[in-house]
Amino acid sequence: MSSHHHSDSHQEIKIVPRDPQKVKQILKVTYILGGVTAIEFAAAFLLPKGVGLTSLFVLLTFVKTFYIVGEFMHLKHEAKTLIWSIIVPTLFIMWLILAMLMEGTSVFNFRTWIWG
């Protein structure tokens, strides 16, 4: 894996100049993350609460997740097998969310039935 390095600590270290294209990409992702957060914040006050607003929040959170994990954590540019071995286990989380929200609703109905 690692190339062999000289034990000589006075080896020449070559500093590569910055690639402006890369910095541009980082800034682009920054603007997207900031912009989406601002939109979420505004939507929390401007739009009526309900399934529609919650769906919008979920969608925008996934947009942010895509950019943080894909670009900042570089997962988008890793090997396909690595990408899938991270994404597939999160299906369990989706299942947990669904199961527990249904369970919560059921407990709510039961409580209302008992105590009104």
């Binding site: 947990l96 969310i97 709510f108």
Partner: peptide, 23 residues
Amino acid sequence: LLSDALSFSGLLVTYGFSRFSHK
């Protein structure tokens, strides 16, 4: 990080469960 994501999901899903089971 994947396992840590599962821990955090546990906490956040518990929040969702509690919220849905209250008025």
